[in-house]
């Protein structure tokens, strides 16, 4: 069966760590990093990238538009 695989790329230097993407992700992929970026914000990162379906919810709701989403159909 074909499966949809997704991936997100987060621009960590522009991320402000507001966590809005974390509560919007239906599969709980995103978490907040303990480290901080150049501005001193904890930034979001894909902690469970295998669960990502590429639904783009996080990217749509991100106020700063730092998330880029990719999606591909893969044959099992």
């Amino acid at each position: 069966m074909a499966k949809i695989k997704g991936a997100i790329v987060i621009d960590i230097e522009r991320c402000k760590g507001c966590e809005v993407c974390i509560v919007s992700c239906p599969t709980g992929v995103i978490r907040l990093e303990k480290k901080v970026n150049g501005k001193g914000y904890h930034f979001a990162y894909p902690a469970l990238p295998d669960n990502c379906t590429g639904c783009a919810n996080c990217a749509v709701v991100c106020p700063d538009g730092v998330i880029t989403v990719y999606r591909k159909k893969v044959e099992e």
């Binding site: 991936a7 538009g65 989403v69």
Partner: peptide, 27 residues
């Protein structure tokens, strides 16, 4: 997976690359 032909969503080029001056989480 991460290659231009699989791109679903990215910031529109009509937004400049300047970091927004708003607080984290602002609508």
């Amino acid at each position: 997976l991460v290659s231009p032909e699989n791109l679903v969503y990215t910031k529109t080029p009509l937004m400049t690359d300047k970091p927004l001056s708003y607080c984290p989480g602002c609508g």
